[in-house]
Design a protein around this nucleic acid. Structure first.
Lengths: 219, 219
DNA sequence: TAGAATTTGTGAATAGATTCACATGCTGAT
DNA sequence: ATCAGCATGTGAATCTATTCACAAATTCTA
């Protein structure tokens, strides 16, 4: 049993690194590695071995001293920790630029995030077919989300309307929202909201390049 | 004068928050605010006032005691710090799902990131027009990047080929790379590499929802 | 012009995350 | 079997980031 409901607070950075480990383990699995050491894992993600071991130790003891971690098993464990050992019913709202890209984004499906519904308010888009999914009218958003047991909603609509839509989404009882709109959304305390701000990384590059008298370059 | 080449190390989180402040200041400017307090700024980004003041203090004293910060002026200052007070010549490599979305992503242009060149290796795409830009053959990548004074490259190609392409990009002397491919790229120390991993935030949601006996929901 | 009300800017204190360092335990060779 | 060699797991130490708390500066009101 993993994490017996301990109240230990897991930091956001640890979770983000678990995602990284998961990806590397998938690769190692394909490369037919049986085991991997924290040292090797760390090297591949430019972290320290201690960091890797500490992160994993929050959830249990998965390794063998003298040998390392069993690749497939550890991958499975991390999948369980991250909740990737099951599928998630996802709805996408907004089939503009970004929305359309997300429909075809293989990485999502691979991780078990299945886009089941797509919504838009544009009459020309409603009814059209995106990778096998018919775009629904956003008018019935609340009911459709409920009827299809949607658990996670991805918001890819213009910033101006994002809050109204999110309010609807919350009324439908959704507890997980991934927001691509460039705006700060208000959600109740029991709803998990994550923002994907694509300009932010570019701005970081801009800062780094503007100040490169000293910088080391790497992240 | 801002930041007189001080060796003070600015943390990544501070820079990311500057991006947030910048966005809020743009909104405040539109709403015709003359000044804004650290308290208000903090509220809008769900941070503490002390955090806001400390972040800004790394770069100078922009506020007036008893009054707050002048909105337009502070926005200008942050733009300077982040290097957004100038344009950046950007090239996009790969016009698949994500690449196409990025070409039309308004937010980039608004911040001064101008996509000047687009590359692909698919003969059917080469020569085609995306928002006024003709897709170039990736064969001439190195030369084209140099000839067009490209400063930042956005990589949106399959994971399997990303490293080869990045090697080329580096040979062209590019020092800033934004990578959307789901792979860990190796770059020299003097090249700034940032990764945009869109699954990561979904995985965080997955983790949060899977463990929601306790979580508070917010980030 | 004086005094109350604000709000910044910043050292000091606290909280949090990372790294160190080593005892512990497993492996594999002889 | 024993022993050298590894590599984990984890308290303790260190480093980093955030928050506190208050003096100093300015505004606003009367």
């Amino acid at each position: 049993m993993i994490s017996e409901s301990k109240k230990k607070k897991i930091s956001e950075s640890t979770i983000r690194r678990l995602s990284l480990y998961y990806r590397v383990l998938s690769i190692l699995e394909k490369e037919n590695y049986e085991t991997v050491s924290s040292k090797e894992l760390a090297k591949r993600e430019k972290l320290t071995p201690a960091q890797v071991r500490k992160d994993l130790s929050f959830f249990g003891s998965f390794g063998t001293r003298g040998l390392g971690y069993p690749v497939s098993e550890l991958k499975k464990q991390i999948a369980e920790i991250l909740g990737l050992n099951r599928g998630w019913n996802v709805a996408l709202i907004g089939v503009g630029n970004i929305g359309s890209a997300l429909v075809g984004y293989k990485e999502f499906q691979r991780q078990g995030f299945n886009i089941k519904l797509i919504f838009d308010n544009d009459q020309r888009k409603i009814g059209s077919n995106h990778k096998g999914i018919i775009v629904s009218d956003i008018k019935n958003l609340e009911k459709d989300l409920k009827d299809n047991s949607i658990e996670i909603v991805v918001v890819a609509v213009p910033a101006t309307v994002a809050q109204y839509i999110v309010d609807d989404v919350i009324r439908a009882g959704i507890k997980g929202i991934l927001n691509f709109a460039s705006v700060n959304l208000k959600v109740p305390d029991d709803v998990f909201l994550r923002n994907e701000n694509m300009s932010m990384e570019l701005e970081y590059l801009s800062f780094a390049l503007s100040n490169l008298r000293n910088g080391t370059g790497d992240d």
